[in-house]
């Protein structure tokens, strides 16, 4: 009897020391055991918080941790090296990012163009069979260049070309030019992506420059005189390049004219009009000839009208009829 009482007393003591593993909650917690997360949606006891914040939060946390651990204990356990181990399921809770989503990489000029035009990249095979060499040639790399050299061991001199020109050298230079241009474009793309202003390169090579570049070069060159191109003549249909007004001080910019009083505008218009009217040639030959013809015609018609009664009678009797054959010697057509 004594022993029983002692045991009961001991267990009561331990029960007092350790809190119970069952916790009752109004609303069940939401668990994500994979990331060891429990979300308590129950209302906080404001009274208890006001009374003793720390103790309340501590006890609340203990209860919730107890519930979470209960869930963990529900999982199948293993024993590894004398320790109880649990394999956690994959986590379901989506953690928000700590950093903003990275921006998409700015497109290169070509990519942008291809996107606009709907050009899709075609996949090329890495190796292709060369009929002439009878072997597989890679798309690029040193083996490709060896193969090219092998293939083009001789180049035909094109017609109208200088026979003493080295065609191999020419081809090499063209390749170098293309590579350099590509590199320049790559750098341009980087500069564009990082919004860096790059100095103008001017005209690089007439073979690779676009018509736009050429036009810009012409416009800049024309304004590059001491008088900012004021006295430089223009070709009849020459247009000024756009977007370079910042570096061509002489270039006329399209700008809205400043408002002026109406009377002044009227005078300006009249001045323009007078310059046009004065420019017209004083003597228009065609007009003069036409007038002359017109005058002669009217004269003739009036003459006819006045001559009708007297003069015509004589005429009619004399030459009105056709000359008949045989009557006069000189008149009429000769017959054979």
């Amino acid at each position: 009897m004594d022993i029983v009482a002692e045991v009961l007393k001991k267990s009561a003591e331990t029960a007092e020391k350790y809190k119970p593993i069952t916790v009752t909650k109004h609303l069940d917690l939401e668990y994500d055991v994979g990331s060891l997360l429990a979300v308590d949606k129950n209302e906080l006891d404001t009274k208890a918080i006001n009374k003793n914040k720390n103790d309340y939060l501590l006890s609340l946390t203990r209860d919730n941790v107890q519930l979470l651990l209960n869930k963990v204990w529900d999982l199948p356990t293993e024993r590894v090296d004398e320790t109880v181990v649990v394999r956690l399921p994959p986590s379901t809770f989506v953690l928000p990012r700590s950093k903003p989503v990275p921006r998409p990489k700015p497109l290169t000029k070509w990519q942008q163009f291809a996107l606009e035009k709907g050009i899709k990249k075609k996949k090329k095979p890495k190796l292709s069979w060369d009929e002439r060499l009878k072997k597989w040639v890679p798309l690029y790399g040193f083996k490709r260049s060896i193969a090219e050299k092998e293939k083009d061991w001789v180049i035909e001199v094109p017609q109208n070309a200088d026979p003493f020109e080295d065609q191999f050298e020419k081809r090499k230079i063209a390749k170098q030019e293309r590579v350099a241009k590509n590199e320049l474009q790559r750098l341009h793309n980087i500069a564009k992506a990082q919004n860096i202003k790059i100095p103008r390169t001017g005209l690089l090579n007439p073979d690779v420059s676009s018509s736009k570049d050429l036009q810009a070069a012409v416009t800049v060159a024309r304004s590059s005189t001491a008088s900012l191109g004021k006295f430089q003549d223009k070709l009849p249909k020459e247009k000024e390049a756009r977007g370079i007004s910042a570096i061509t001080p002489g270039a006329s910019r399209k700008r809205k004219l400043p408002p002026v009083p109406a009377t002044q505008e009227k005078e300006e218009n009249l001045a323009v009009l007078n310059s046009i009217l004065n420019k017209k040639p004083k003597l228009d030959i065609e007009k003069a000839v036409n007038r002359q013809i017109n005058q002669e015609e009217t004269e003739r018609s009036t003459e006819k009208k006045t001559r009708k009664p007297g003069g015509n009678k004589i005429n009619k009797s004399k030459g009105g009829k056709k000359p008949k054959s045989g009557k006069g010697k000189s008149a009429g057509r000769k017959r054979r």
């Binding site: 809205k256 218009n269 323009v272 310059s275 046009i276």
Partner: peptide
């Protein structure tokens, strides 16, 4: 307003 060039063309 019409520019001088355009005024000329118009007139």
């Amino acid at each position: 307003r019409l520019s001088e060039e355009r005024t000329k063309i118009l007139f």
